[in-house]
């Protein structure tokens, strides 16, 4: 299998995305995931029920770092190029913006957010070279009116016709 072929590389990366999403989905709903959600919800209470928050947070960071490492390796294959600019904070910020845009508290959110981000970047880029300005405005609106991003917005729109009845 040669990753030099565009189509092969695409399917290869898509396969990894599917696997990573499955892993994250299972993790969120597992006992470990319940512990993490508990820590986020009320960290001081965690010790009093006999759990050591630090160990679970550490494991979560390791898991998240591992997934990012896979993504990094795939990116290097896609771009056939690695430069120090990948370490610039703006790259991390882009990833965070994707999550904010799509929605933080779901597995689907970051996927939707990444797609939306790429779409906006391309689309707005065609309209004006100052597209980050427009992107900024859109982000502010999303953060103000939909704390959980596009996923929540869509969910609300789908529910509202029934609410009206």
């Amino acid at each position: 299998m040669s990753l030099g072929n565009d189509a092969t590389l695409y399917w290869f990366i898509l396969g990894w995305l599917a696997l990573a999403s499955l892993i994250v989905h299972r993790t969120v709903h597992s006992r470990f995931g319940l512990t993490l959600r508990g820590i986020r919800s009320n960290e001081t209470r965690i010790a009093s029920i006999g759990l050591h928050a630090y160990r679970y947070k550490l494991a979560a960071f390791v898991l998240s770092g591992t997934l990012c490492a896979v993504a990094g390796a795939l990116l290097a294959n896609l771009a056939q190029f690695v430069s120090p600019s990948y370490m610039h904070w703006a790259r991390s910020a882009e990833l965070l913006l994707m999550v904010l845009l799509g929605g933080m508290s779901s597995v689907l959110g970051p996927l939707v957010g990444a797609a939306a981000f790429m779409f906006l970047e391309e689309g707005l880029g065609m309209v004006t070279p100052h597209w980050p300005l427009l992107m900024g405005a859109i982000l502010v609106v999303v953060v103000m009116y939909a704390r959980n991003g596009i996923v929540e917005l869509v969910g609300r729109l789908r529910r509202s016709p029934q609410d009206a009845r």
Binding site: R26, T27, H29, S30, R31, F32, G33, L34, T35, R37, G38, I49, G50, L51, Y56, A59
Partner: peptide
């Protein structure tokens, strides 16, 4: 119910179960 399950988790051993659904 998640509150109650989480609170009972430490008693049931460690919580490094990544795959099985907690519920």
């Amino acid at each position: 119910i998640e509150n109650a399950l989480l609170a009972g988790q430490a008693h049931a051993g460690h919580s490094f179960r990544f795959w099985q659904h907690a519920l």
